[in-house]
Amino acid sequence: MENNYSISVDKLTKKFGNFTAVDAISFDVNGGEIFGFLGANGAGKTTAMRMLCGLSIPSSGKATIAGFDVYKETEKIKRNIGYMSQKFSLYEDLTVAENIQFFGGIYGLDRKELRDKSAELIARLGMEKDAKKLVNSIPLGWKQKLAFSVAILHRPEIVFLDEPTGGVDPLTRRQFWDLIYQAADSGITAFVTTHYMDEAEYCNRISIMVDGKIEALDKPAALKNKYGVNSMNDVFQHLARGASRSDL
C-alpha cells in the first residue's frame, strides 16, 4: 500500500470476543492535516487510536502510519509518532527541564540536540523562569502546553492527541490550539480526539464514530451543510442519537 497519506486506514477492525469495538473503519489523513476523531464514550475511539499507535494488534483490515504497517512495523511507528493523553503525560515530581530531558532521552535525542531543543522549547513557551520548577507547581494550562511540546520534541510525523484539553478554560484551550496549528504548519499531522464541539470546528476534517463505525467524515462546514444545522454540536447530537452503546 504505497501512498503519501500520513495515516491510511482500510476496513480496520478490532474484536474482543463477540464484541466488535471497531467495525471496519476506513479513512486517510494527509500530511500536515488536523484530523478530528470524534465519538461518544464507548464508540470505539480509544481502541481505534491504540491500534494506530501500535499498542494493540488489529483483528483485521489494513492501516499504515507514516507509511509503516500496524501489524509488522510497530517499532518504526513508535519512532515516528508523538502521543499525549487526557491524563497527564508529564512527571509531576520532576522539574520542567527534567521532563523535557527525559522524554527527549527516551526518543534517543543526543545531548547537544536535547540541549538546543529544550532551550528552544522553553523559550517558545516563555517558561524560562519556570524551567527549574516542579511540574506539579505550574498551572494546568501550562502543563498541557508543555506536554504537547514534549510530545513533538522529537519531530514526529504524526502526533496523537487523546482529549488533550480536558478540564481547562476556553481561553487556554484556544492557546493550546494555536500550538497545534503551529505544529501542523510545520508539517506535523495532528490526530485529535475531543469532547468539545467548538474544538471540532478548529479541525481541517473530522470523523464521527458511532457504535464502532465511522458515520460521517468531512470538513466541519460541509457536515453542517449536509445535516442542515448551525453547529458541530447539532451534527454530533444528530448522529449520536442513533447510537446503541453510548452513554450520552
Partner: peptide, 8 residues
C-alpha cells in the same frame, strides 16, 4: 501509556 507508545 506514554512510555508504551514511545520506542522505549
Amino acid at each position: 501509556e506514554i512510555l508504551l507508545v514511545s520506542p522505549f
